[in-house]
Design a protein around this nucleic acid. Structure first.
Lengths: 157, 157
DNA sequence: GCAATAATGACACCTTGGTTGTCATGAATG
DNA sequence: CATTCATGACAACCAAGGTGTCATTATTGC
């Protein structure tokens, strides 16, 4: 049928990259649905989950830092953090570096919650991994990171 | 800065897959922003772009078919198609297979629009490709497809 | 030390991708 | 022929995420 009129195997890398992005969309949507259908146990919205996860892997940071790190608007991150704080998942501690913007830190409760969620996700992903090799996954990560870095010049706020 | 100094690359493939999804989110958001900041020339929303692109690569299909193909709700696809139809980017032609549900086909105008958008995106991606090899990209596509297929059991509608 | 500037927090509002629910209708199938 | 199923249309709704604005407070430059 109307296969790619340009031979994919020999084609420009750019064509293949289009394919990558055609996959990223559905993948993102489905993952999001899976997560929010799976994680209501902790009652974490996707946004809150995201910021908690940032804190989990990066350690304490300020709100604007988190926004920049994920190319999310400062205000959005703030809202998520406020939400999380209201549930005692994070707390703000004075920041020795910046007087005005305090560091956000996971509470024990928060750490427990995000760890539980991530662990649950990992369990699912372990099945999803299937026959994928480490090398393949590493390559995938490298490609995606590369693309992400390239698109990184967007400025929010 | 955000070196992975605390994140040992040890481990289960599942851990690496978590990384993949951690990349998919930001990538999706940024790509979306790039697209909609780049494509307002044609005035295509992300949704309309998506359905047009489906028609472009797959040929004419019915609305429910498109929904199933992308795990989007029938109604959402319909809205996008209606939108596109209102702008004469698609038209419905009688379907020899199903009397009731007509085939949606790209108009010349629609084909021109989606082709222009995709081409423009390709140009950007060509730079983004950089030093990525075809093999790497192919691997990435394989991994993502695999994951997508795994998450595919979601049912909408 | 003081004025100018930039960064932060707070809050309100908006857009939009996407779902769900419902209904009428017309087709497919028993 | 009766029933079921699929489609289109439309409305209500939700959540992710952005934008605009303002007051406040640091930080910087002089």
């Amino acid at each position: 049928m109307s296969e790619t009129d340009h031979d994919p195997a020999s084609g420009e890398p750019a064509d293949r990259l289009t394919e990558v992005f055609d996959l990223v969309g559905p993948l993102y949507r489905r993952a999001q649905r899976k997560v929010e259908q799976d994680a209501p146990i902790e009652g974490l919205s996707v946004g809150v989950r995201a910021v908690l996860n940032m804190l989990r892997e990066h350690g304490s940071m300020t709100v604007p830092q988190m926004g920049r790190a994920q190319a999310l608007s400062r205000q959005f991150v703030q809202r998520m953090i406020n939400d999380a704080a209201a549930r005692h998942l994070v707390e703000s501690v004075p920041n020795p570096m910046h007087k005005r913007s305090s560091l956000i830190r996971l509470t024990e409760e928060g750490r427990a919650a995000i760890t539980a969620v991530v662990d649950r996700e990992r369990t699912v992903l372990r099945q999803a991994g299937g026959d994928l090799t480490d090398t393949e996954i590493a390559t995938c990560i490298r490609v995606l990171s590369h693309l992400l870095r390239f698109l990184d010049d967007v400025d929010v706020d």
